[in-house]
Simulated assay, not measured.
Amino acid sequence: MTVAMEPTEELRRIPMSWGDYLNHPENDGEYYGGCLVVMPTAGKKHQQIVKRLLRLVEADLPAGAEALPSLGWSPSGVRELLIPDLTVFRDESDEDFLSGVPLLVVEVLSTNRRDDLVAKVQRYAAWRAPSYWIVDPRDHQVLTLELVDGLYLETARHTGGQVVLTYGDVEVPVDLDALLA
């Protein structure tokens, strides 16, 4: 299947099968809801926040864990693939994307806020990600969620200053104002 794409600043959904997605020559987006979902390139501020957060998370990684930005995640048996802005995981495979359950997924909100706040919350919960952080530069806050009985419960909503973000037993000290600067 060939898909011609015009340059755009908006989220694009291109219907296709899972097989067509896996064989798509560019494979340049996420796949869910029966569509290749192509997002605009993350802006400078978005990328800077991911980079700063990656450094903070890497300083307090659990033994045997790794943190990577933009790592695709497709749980075994699921025909969808999401690409969190940051993922903390333990994985020994050489696959191009993660198939096990990560310790933490993080999304930095930008142009696809609805997907990050609804569609991805539902999928990450169904896929059993135990912790989900939502970083919101527009509203200057970080929301932390923990999976309880298959649903995410808000554990904290931080809006500034020195905070401690947690996932599992891990505590990550963060200057929220510097992170979101």
Rank of each mutant, 00 (worst) to 15 (best):
D96G: 15
L117D: 04
E9S: 05
Y132W: 03
M1D: 03
S74Q: 02
S76W: 10
N23H: 07
T2G: 01
N112L: 11
R13K: 12
T2F: 04
M39V: 05
S93G: 08
W133F: 04
P75Y: 05
V164D: 15
D136N: 04
T2V: 03
V57E: 13
N23C: 11
M39N: 06
V78L: 12
D149W: 10
A181P: 09
R52A: 12
G168L: 13
R138L: 15
V170N: 02
L98P: 02
E171M: 01
D177H: 03
D169N: 14
P137N: 10
V101A: 03
D20W: 00
H158G: 07
T111H: 03
R123D: 05
P25Q: 13
G19A: 09
G161R: 03
S131N: 07
L53R: 01
L103M: 12
D116Q: 02
S99P: 00
L147H: 03
S76A: 15
R52H: 09
E146D: 14
R123N: 04
V118L: 14
Y152L: 07
L53H: 00
A129L: 09
S93D: 11
V88M: 02
T87C: 14
L153M: 14
V78F: 01
V121S: 01
E6M: 14
H158P: 06
S74W: 00
G33C: 04
S110A: 13
L151K: 13
V172T: 13
P7D: 14
Y132C: 05
P62V: 11
Q141W: 00
E92T: 12
I49L: 00
L81C: 15
K44H: 04
Q162T: 08
A125D: 09
L54V: 12
E80W: 09
A125G: 14
Y21E: 12
E66I: 13
M39R: 09
S76Y: 13
G19R: 08
Q162I: 06
W133A: 02
A63D: 11
T144N: 08
E58Y: 11
E107Q: 06
K44R: 13
R113L: 01
A59D: 15
S110V: 04
G150D: 10
V78Q: 14
E154R: 11
L117H: 04
S76C: 10
T159G: 14
A125W: 05
L81Y: 05
P130N: 10
V3H: 10
V106W: 00
L109P: 03
Y124V: 04
L151W: 13
D94A: 10
S76T: 12
K45P: 01
L117E: 12
G43N: 10
V172Q: 07
Q122N: 06
H158F: 14
I134L: 13
E154L: 11
V78T: 10
K120N: 08
D169K: 13
P75D: 06
V174L: 06
V106K: 00
I14T: 07
E80G: 15
S70E: 14
V88S: 00
D96K: 14
H140V: 09
V3Q: 10
E107N: 11
M5A: 12
R128V: 03
H46A: 04
K120L: 05
Y152K: 03
